[in-house]
Write a protein that binds this DNA or RNA. Structure first.
Length: 879
RNA sequence: GCCGGGAUGGCGGAAUUGGUAGACGCGCCGGACUCAAAAUCCGGUUCUGGCAACAGAGUGAGAGUUCGAGUCUCUCUCCCGGCACCA
């Protein structure tokens, strides 16, 4: 028997204790059962759970619990992506060692996750900053080194000249270092890379097979890999210069080249900068921008003329040669041929520098207006003004020019990728040490297996200038494993994306201390459902796919792709409020501290800060962030309403892939629903107990045949119709409409009259309520597991709801004698008819025309056509 | 700049395949209960006109296909996410 009032704090503590005591979510490999591996992206332990975490993990938990009730052997693990920059920032700001800060955060966040009632197998917890985890990452990297899949080369970084340190993109604010405020420079340093480009073709091709992934994510990855076919060839350069090698995907436009451009870092630029101070200054200026692609693309396109010409490989024409800030040394060859007639960026640069724009492609019919912009089409075009290559379509011209350049300009047809090799080295302390020893005699050598792991010292003094590791001889001083001489240990650490590229495999066998993974991974992998933020659509999800293939090729795992199905959840947003001072300084106020006024209709009339009553300005909605002060602390909500209410709200407020706008009042609505549900079960529990007595506690009632009471039939039909929709919506992960259907069902049960006193009523009326309630509680169990656990028992069930069999739709309950159809006249709704289910068109037409309102709209006009959609609609076309 | 996504009442959202636009919830309005408030319960709620019956308009803007378009096609606007050292 349950109490009269819903007390989530008591219910949730009790139920969580029950799950813990019974180890309800521990799983083992069982080949006789169908497995289901449901994985949510593990959190960075930033300190407290935020709403994005709550949403992510609730979605994953609902799917896991649903699959368990469907009879699967479900693994749902959790862990910590524990290395990263914020720990170093915290260390600098509050003098706490990154390790202690991180472990404290993990402890706190773990309590929060438990409080939300997620069905995790905590026995498989993975923490990436622990040596038992990262040692295998180090071991794996040494394999890649030996295979030549890891290598060192120069790479460009953001350099803070005052702090003498490498900056993350995030630490560059308006082109300046976040701490020093000094203008950031680009600097080239030697870095470790992993050869992801060697797997580009496979990573691209297998996207076609990932039918369980959103098309948007697959498209983004395809574009990111960016496979293109083109030609690489040489332009001559005046003077005693080496030829200038370029790559182009449009050799067909080679006759339209009117200038050339090289990157600021190109050797040709460096050569002429020596005697040319303005050029040297320009190159210097190019070094002073941050290195993100977005920044490079958005900046003003500038160029500086070099004192020599390039020579056209076909005509021998002299072409002006520029150093340009939009040409990147890292892409292609660091030099581009410019065809302003048929490339928009080249066009804009040519316009700005008064360079000729030459048309060499035109539409098959008509002409292009090169005054308005470049003509970039390839379909239905023909080459023109191209001498020997005139009059060809795109493909023919491509082939002819490619052949010519191969013969006469040292050319070669090549396939290139936009994808670059993955730079995995970071000049930071709080990361996994790269297991390499640098010896002046023998070069860079992998740390021998028996010396692994290379432990990261955790008790360090942390100032924030340079990496502490580079200042610790006790860390870096070592002996060369080959010659035995003095050598220096690598002080760079791995990009944290390396840890997150294989954690999903480690969960299968987190306790294995003899290797990276064991054969248990073959049972659990691939992940059946992966859930995480859309912001990971490219990088993390591509790196993880890449690592899966690396591990496969090392013989560690069988499968090719790590994640069969992917659900990318939308961001959590909240309103942003601010005030501007007279000096123009902006102060943001948390929405929790703002009162919103409404007019008589409920429309927004204004907003004021609660503490002083003065108005604040709304800046619309945006992702919850510290800088905009619009975060909502989940903990406060859990304390006030309980985990089930928070879970229910998050699932109800929006479909998982959409953004979710926060609304405090709607949380109240979710709580109200649970209180009503509780009260409803409470009000019927005596009658249910009487019904269950003598029926082995299962409430079994024989519904064979049509029940005579139309109200009983109606409630049964409502319950089974709701279940049908709920099943469909669970399958397509539209949890918001699952909840909506549950609310409708609750309303239907609530309206149904049940005899309360013993012996004065029809047994069937109690039975139908019990059946409807059992369906309702069972289908809600994945979403609000604590309250469902208790209510399930109150309905007389003897098993735990987490292991209850999913209810089945009784088709018999849904059968109807008549259907309602809509009548349209010329596509406009004019009436409704109730008609027997199997009525033919003649009958439907007659019924439609017998409707007064329909007749009025038809009037004297003749009926030209009648369209009937069986069981739904009839449209009379008149005129 | 490039790539990807989105836009439906006062708000979040719903609408199997092109077939009743606005389910469900929030808010708001009115009522019941109460000394009062909260909570709870009942009724209403797309907009415009009308006491009403009813009529007209309506899914970011503009065009098109169709008996019929939120849904399909084209053009445009605005908002959001990613862009390789935030995770």
């Amino acid at each position: 028997m349950i109490e009269q009032h819903y007390r989530p704090e008591i219910v949730e503590a009790d139920v969580q204790h029950y799950w813990d005591a019974g180890e309800c979510f521990r799983v083992t490999e069982d080949p006789s059962r169908e497995k289901y591996y449901c994985l949510s992206m593990f959190p960075y332990p930033s300190g407290r759970l935020h709403m994005g975490h709550v949403r992510n993990y609730t979605i994953g938990d609902v799917i896991s619990r649903y699959q368990r009730m469907r009879g699967k052997n479900v693994l749902q693990p959790m862990g910590w992506d524990a290395f990263g920059l914020p720990a170093e920032n915290a260390a600098i700001q509050s003098q706490v060692p990154p390790a202690r800060w991180t472990y404290d955060n993990i402890a706190h966040m773990k309590v929060q996750l438990r409080r939300l009632g997620f069905a995790y197998d905590w026995g498989r917890e993975v923490t990436t900053c622990r040596p038992e985890y990262y040692r295998w990452e180090q071991w794996f990297f040494t394999r890649l080194l030996k295979k030549g899949l890891a290598y060192k080369k120069m790479a460009t970084v953001n350099w803070d000249p005052v702090d003498q340190t490498v900056l993350a993109n995030e630490q560059v604010i308006d082109g300046r270092g976040w701490r020093s405020g000094a203008p950031v420079e680009r600097r080239d340093i030697p870095q470790w890379f992993i050869r992801i480009t060697a797997y580009a073709d496979e990573l691209l091709a297998e996207l076609d097979n990932l039918s369980g992934w959103p098309e948007a994510v697959r498209t983004m990855q395809r574009n990111w890999i960016g496979r293109s076919a083109g030609v690489e060839f040489d332009f001559g350069v005046e003077g005693d210069n080496a030829p200038l090698r370029v790559y182009t995907t449009r050799p067909d436009t080679v006759m339209g080249v009117t200038y050339m451009a090289v990157a600021a870092e190109h050797p040709l630029a460096a050569k002429y900068a020596e005697g040319d101070p303005p050029l040297a200054a320009f190159i210097d200026e190019c070094r002073r921008t941050d290195v993100t692609e977005a920044a490079l693309e958005k900046m003003e396109k500038k160029g500086h003329r070099l004192p020599v010409h390039a020579l056209h490989p076909v005509t021998g024409e002299q072409l002006p040669l520029f150093v340009a800030n939009f040409v990147l040394m890292a892409y292609g060859t660091g030099a581009v041929m410019a065809v302003p007639g048929h490339d928009q960026r080249d066009w804009e640069f040519a316009r700005a520098h008064g360079i000729e724009i030459r048309q060499v492609v035109r539409p098959v019919d008509g002409d292009a207006d090169l005054e308005a912009g470049a003509y970039i089409a390839k379909e239905a075009t023909v080459s023109c003004n191209s001498g020997q290559f005139d009059g060809l379509d795109f493909q023919a011209c491509f082939d002819a020019t490619a052949e010519y350049l191969t013969q006469h300009a040292n050319g070669e047809r090549t396939t290139r990728y936009r994808l670059r090799d993955w730079g995995v080295g970071r000049q930071r302390y709080w990361g996994c040490p790269i297991p390499v020893i640098n010896c002046d005699q023998c070069g860079a050598l992998p740390v021998p297996d028996e010396q692994l792991p290379v432990l990261l010292p955790e008790n360090v003094e942390f100032q924030g200038v340079g990496s502490p590791l580079a200042n610790m001889p006790e860390f870096y001083a070592t002996a060369c494993p080959q010659c035995g001489g003095a050598a220096r240990r690598e002080t760079d650490t791995f990009d944290t994306f390396v840890e997150s590229s294989w954690y999903f495999a480690r969960y299968a066998c987190a306790d294995h201390d003899g290797g990276m993974v064991d054969r248990r991974a073959d049972y659990w992998l691939p992940v059946d459902q992966y859930v995480g933020g859309i912001e990971h659509a490219v990088l993390h999800l591509l790196y993880a796919r890449f690592f899966q293939k690396l591990m496969r090729d090392e013989g560690l795992v069988d499968v090719d792709e790590p994640f069969t199905n992917l659900l990318t959840q939308g961001m959590v947003l909240n309103e942003i409020f601010y005030r501007k001072t007279e000096e123009g300084r902006i102060t943001y106020f948390n929405p929790a501290d703002v009162d919103v006024q409404t007019d008589q209709r409920g429309a927004r009339a204004g907003a004021a800060l609660r503490t002083d009553g003065q108005p604040v300005i709304s800046a619309g909605i945006g992702t919850m962030s510290k800088s905009k002060n619009n975060g909502v602390d989940p903990q406060a909500l859990i304390d006030r309403f309980g985990a089930d209410t928070v879970r229910l709200f998050v699932m109800f407020a929006a479909p998982p892939e959409h953004t979710l706008e926060w609304n405090d009042d709607a949380v109240l609505g979710a709580n109200r629903f649970l209180r009503r549900l509780w009260a409803l079960v409470h009000s019927h529990q005596a009658a249910i107990a009487r019904l269950n007595a003598g029926r082995c506690g299962n409430g079994g009632f024989d519904w064979a045949g049509s029940h005579p009471d139309p109200q009983v039939r109606a409630l049964r039909a409502a319950a089974h119709a709701a279940l049908e929709r709920i099943n469909r919506d669970y399958q397509r992960y539209q949890f918001n409409t699952v909840v909506a259907a549950c609310m409708e069902l609750l309303n239907a049960i609530d309206r149904f009259d049940v005899p309360q006193a013993a012996g004065d009523g029809d047994e069937a009326r109690v039975a139908v309520v019990l059946e409807a309630l059992a369906i309702l509680v069972a289908v809600l169990a994945p979403i609000v597991p604590h309250v469902a656990h208790v209510l399930w028992r109150a309905l007389g069930q003897v098993d735990d709801v987490i292991d209850a069999r999913w209810p089945e739709v009784d088709a018999g309950a849904l059968e109807r004698d008549t259907v309602e159809m809509v009548v349209q006249v010329n596509g406009k709704l004019r009436g409704h008819i109730e008609i027997e289910s199997g009525a033919d068109e003649e009958r439907i037409r007659a019924a439609a025309l017998s409707e007064e309102k329909v007749r009025r709209h038809v009037g004297d006009s003749s009926i030209r056509r009648v369209i009937v959609v069986p069981g739904k609609l009839v449209n009379l076309v008149v005129g």
